[in-house]
Amino acid sequence: MFDHILVRYGEINTKGQNRSQLERLLMNNVQQAVKEWEAVNVRRISSRILVQLNGTPAEPVLTRLSKVFGISSLSPVMAVRADVETITEAANQLFDKLPSAPRTFKVEVKRGNKRFVMDSPTLAGHVGEAVLSAHADLTVDVHHPDATIHIDVRDEGAYLYAEKIEGAAGLPVGMSGRVCALLSGGIDSPVAVWKAMKRGLQVDLVHFHSFPFTSERAQRKVEELTSTLAGWSRDLNLHLISVTETQAAIQKSCPEALRTILLRRMMFRICEALAARRGWLALVTGDSLGQVASQTLEGIYAVDSATSLSVLRPVGMEDKQDIINVARRIGTFETSIQPYDDCCSIFAPRHPKTHPTLEEVERAEEKLDVQQLVETALQSLEVKRISAADAR
């Protein structure tokens, strides 16, 4: 019955002079999202995107589009000619196909086509009377109806629907620039990546490992997380970088209590060395203030001082349970809790320094050949292009 999907966007409508550019970007992202279904056609109509299914089942397309950032809501719709009797007949068909048997209903009309022969209240009344006469024991309730028939009358036709599905909201991926994000394999960093993408950022992922001390299974876990996140975006670039030699140097020459801080400073420097080549404007991390010993305000300050890149922390002020709730919703939680250690956890000091000063961190770092360690790490760089299909 439903041969089209009506795509709405919210925040884009507030963007003034940038609106047309954002609409084109969202249109492109929608086309990319549905490209696996060859019969599906996508086109723009006034303040909306219309997806024509051409025989493709609506459910999988709706599921995929619900993960496209920038979309506020979706509706499977019937597309008919914009004349009164055709609309009325379609409304009765739509009502008959509702999954439950409502006892009350109302009709809501939006009339983008101001030349239509009836105004919105008149058309709503006309259609409502027809539905009432065709269905016994049915009454109108304009405040709390069991079902609502929506009619959107436009120049090119009319669209009828009874369901509005929540979209991912946010801004289209690619609008806000390109960044790198540290992906550890834990719970927090995938959520931080998801939140960054929701604000329109194109994210490249960086995973630091210390093979052979971290396992191939730990890497596969990170690749699976990347694939899940790609389902909310486009295909993602995963940068795999070894810090085995960096960790060995820190362990040999530096105080144990500062290991994690020093390692993270090196990670930030490595990302900065890649930033110019990749077009990264900022660095995204999954840090949450006070959650672990290295994420005190002093620790964060000491780490950030190692780079000139802007550092974004999308989950920085959130409780752990709130982060877990998001991880469950976006599909990363079950992968994140797989028990494979990352390079930070196997390197963690027994008694970490929770309130380091920048001076003592820099003093400890004087024993390291920082530039050589950065160059050595970059020589291990491996880049994988990962899509949502890789998780299937």
Rank of each mutant, 00 (worst) to 15 (best):
M266S: 06
V42P: 09
A147P: 10
G299D: 05
G185S: 11
A273P: 04
A181Y: 02
L274Q: 15
K67M: 07
S210I: 03
D342Y: 10
V206S: 08
R64S: 08
I5S: 07
G167I: 09
S73L: 01
Y340R: 05
K97W: 10
I261Q: 10
I45Q: 09
M78R: 15
V30T: 06
V173M: 05
P356A: 13
V222K: 00
N41C: 11
Y9T: 12
H144P: 00
A101V: 14
T307A: 02
I12A: 02
E366T: 13
K198L: 04
E382H: 14
L274M: 15
A58Q: 05
L138G: 04
S66F: 02
L373R: 06
N92W: 06
P349M: 12
M317S: 15
V292D: 14
H239R: 10
V315D: 09
D96C: 11
T139V: 02
W194S: 06
V206Q: 03
N325E: 13
H4C: 09
V326D: 10
P255Q: 10
E23D: 00
L358P: 04
V142H: 02
Q202V: 04
S233A: 15
K106M: 13
L171Q: 11
V30I: 15
V326Y: 04
T139G: 07
E318Q: 14
M1Y: 10
T260P: 06
M197C: 13
S308C: 09
Q295Y: 03
S189Q: 05
H207F: 03
G70S: 05
F211T: 04
V142S: 07
S20V: 13
E163C: 06
C271W: 01
L182E: 12
L132Q: 08
I250N: 13
G170I: 10
E163F: 12
E89V: 14
S288G: 11
N237D: 11
C254I: 08
L50E: 14
L236V: 04
V370C: 14
N325H: 12
S73V: 00
V374L: 07
R329T: 11
V61A: 01
F268R: 05
G286W: 02
P76Y: 07
D390C: 01
L274T: 03
L262Q: 06
A91H: 06
G316Q: 07
Q32L: 10
I323F: 01
V84S: 02
P76F: 01
T214C: 09
K221E: 04
I337K: 05
K221V: 06
R264D: 11
P121I: 08
S47Y: 13
S120T: 05
D369K: 14
G177C: 12
R111A: 08
R265E: 09
D287R: 02
V315S: 10
S380T: 15
A276H: 11
S215T: 15
Q247P: 08
N325Q: 13
E318L: 15
Y9K: 11
A196S: 15
R199E: 08
V117W: 02
W280L: 01
S294I: 04
G290A: 00
G290E: 00
V109A: 02
E224R: 15
D188K: 10
N41W: 12
L62H: 09
I261M: 09
